[in-house]
């Protein structure tokens, strides 16, 4: 297991290096000068040169990339102040330090994504398993067709609609907002309830269908039939044998879906005006804010890569065949 983790971590470092370089060089491929934003209306070539120098944009791109990467680990003393490691520099747009901004925005996104995941896993898997258990009955048909309809409910469509119906017109739910869980858990929950539901709606539908189909597939496995032939009860076979086998495909898809979950969280934040990493990413792109963009990119890429390592390690707990090879 340790060997596996070490090997995967080495691989992750390579992937992250590649992503950082790709983002960095892609940024400079866009014909847009980030200095223009700070330069204002009366911009002269001389002013622009000074700003270029201040932002470090006068070096060749590979040198800039090298400096940027080194400073993440070593920290750097800018003329404007000290930037301790992990240092992603100052935002081009508002001159804030990148890392503290990220840390400020993280809890919102984390709450949103984790809560959304909890919702779609709980509801999606439960309904999917129920549909498989009651295969061919009315329950199965209702769940299956409902999940088909819901899987086409995009966030930017259902979000504003739900906001109008449930919050503004009927005041059934609170206005979505982020309250730290440490301040007030009830307010945290109430404030995020609607965003969670909206974010997870497509995922719930997809996990219902997936759980149903993998369970049905597993129930037809020969080893499941053997368990029935041994006299094990239907429920025991369902939960101990078929369910265990369904975990592998579900966990695999979960690993792949984390990226889309973060993407979904981004749109949800924008829809409900929540200040999370997603909005930060969107703003940094719009403002050509390289340090902030790199910070968000590397941070979310790290999360996804780490999550995938966790998923792969989870295989070993689920399937003994993986454990030994």
């Amino acid at each position: 297991m340790l060997r596996f983790l070490v090997r995967r971590t080495l691989g992750a470092v390579v992937i992250l290096l590649f992503i950082s370089a790709f983002t960095f060089f892609l940024f400079f491929a866009i014909p847009h000068d980030p200095a223009l934003l700070s330069c204002g209306k009366n911009c002269t070539p001389d002013n622009l040169k000074i700003i270029h120098h201040n932002l470090g944009l006068d070096h060749p791109v590979p040198v800039q990339y090298y400096n940027f990467m080194v400073r993440i680990f070593t920290g750097y003393h800018y003329s404007a102040g000290n930037c301790p490691a992990p240092c992603f520099g100052y935002s081009f747009a508002n001159s804030e330090l990148v890392w503290p901004t990220l840390m400020d925005r993280l809890p919102t996104t984390l709450s949103l994504a984790a809560g959304g995941m909890a919702v779609f896993l709980l509801i999606g898997l439960a309904t999917g398993m129920l549909a498989a258990w009651k295969r061919g009955t009315m329950v199965d048909k209702v769940f299956s067709s409902a999940s088909l309809v819901l899987s086409s409910m995009q966030i930017y469509f259902i979000g504003p609609l739900a906001l109008a119906l449930l919050v503004y017109n009927n005041q059934i739910l609170d206005q979505p907002k982020y309250v730290p869980i440490t301040d007030n858990p009830v307010a945290w929950f109430n404030g995020l309830l609607l965003p969670w539901c909206v974010l997870s709606i497509i995922f719930t539908a997809n996990y219902t269908r997936m759980a149903r189909s993998t369970m049905i597939e597993q129930l037809q496995e020969e080893h499941v039939r053997t368990a029935v032939a041994k006299g094990m009860s239907g429920r025991y076979v369902f939960f101990r044998y078929a369910w265990r086998g369904s975990l592998i495909p579900i966990v695999t898809i979960l690993g792949i879906d984390l990226g889309s979950l973060l993407g979904g969280a981004m749109i949800t934040e924008w829809t409900f005006q929540l200040a999370g990493l997603g909005r930060l990413a969107l703003d940094s792109v719009l403002h050509a804010d390289l340090p902030m963009l790199m910070g968000v990119m590397l941070f979310s890429a790290t999360m996804i890569v780490l999550f995938n390592i966790i998923v792969d390690a989870a295989y070993a707990f689920i399937d003994p065949r993986v454990r030994l090879s």
Partner: peptide
Amino acid sequence: SNRTLEKLRGDKMAMIFQDSLTALSPY
């Protein structure tokens, strides 16, 4: 009934399948 059969299976009547790799649970 299924209940009756469950009591008999594995106790009074048992079965051996052809492919032991797929017929035993890997988990």
